[in-house]
Amino acid sequence: MGMTAPALELVGLHKSFGRVAVIRGVDLQIEAGERHAIIGPNGAGKSTLFHLISGRFPPSSGAIRLKGRDIAGLPPYEIRRRGLARSFQVTNIFPRLSVFENLRCGLLWPMGYKYAFWRNVDRLVELNERSERLLEEIGLADRRHLPAGVLTYSEQRALEIGIALAGGADVLMLDEPTAGMSRSETDQTVELIRRVTAGKALVVVEHDVGVVFGLADRISVLVYGEIIATDTPDNIRRSEAVQEAYLGTARHGEGAR
């Protein structure tokens, strides 16, 4: 090819559950350094698409390439080790571990500690410094010792994102990162995402139109398991097909979720 492979590439991706086709042929290329948003009405298959890419379940057919290498069907931990991290729409943390420990666990594999059972975690200086920094970045420094399960909803959302950010993956996928956050929390989170994803690939599913148009370099519109348009925010805003399929319904109907 000569040129470098895209950070993430989907080719003819299909997923069916029984006879129900949820993802019906998705093709998409995301370059390193690009912030890409996926929007679409509820039930369009956005979360399923995330699950396929991150390995929660295997695609029925099609290819998923991470930095040029096929990862379709690999287990989640293999995909994470190859440099793709994700957050979840429904908060998915370690409830009995402390907030600090949640973040530190997120850093262990990327920093190469693997299954080490001969090193004291409290003595690993760089690991603890990076955990500490992340803790401050997501604004939970005063919650560091609390079990994650007792945090408020929006604090858990911040931690959810923090775990995904830990280790600085090359491709980061965030599933509705600002859902349930207040305006100011949303702004802070967007600022954080913008900062940590500089030079890396970001894929984000988001219902908050303001966040999507402010953050994304390109936007894909997913409707009934197919991408009907991929373009710059301005062009997407102007596209009549998109207006009809998604933004129109959003304006008349549910609003931001």
């Binding site: 991150s54 390995g55 287990p75 989640p76 931990y77 994470r80 080790r81 991290a85 994700r86 979840f88 998915n92 943390i93 370690f94 409830p95 009995r96 571990l97 420990e101 530190r104 666990c105 997120g106 262990l108 594999w109 990327p110 500690y113 693997k114 299954y115 080490a116 059972f117 001969w118 090193r119 004291n120 975690v121 409290d122 690993l124 775990i163 830990a166 280790g167």
Partner: peptide, 28 residues
């Protein structure tokens, strides 16, 4: 006791709490 304070020991706790998420942070 020392074992419980190693990277592996901490991931044991993580797997106890949420085996699914543990896989998404790189651990089988």
């Amino acid at each position: 006791y020392a074992l419980s304070r190693t990277p592996f020991g901490r991931m044991c706790n993580a797997v106890r709490d949420n085996p699914e998420r543990a896989e998404f942070i790189g651990y089988s």
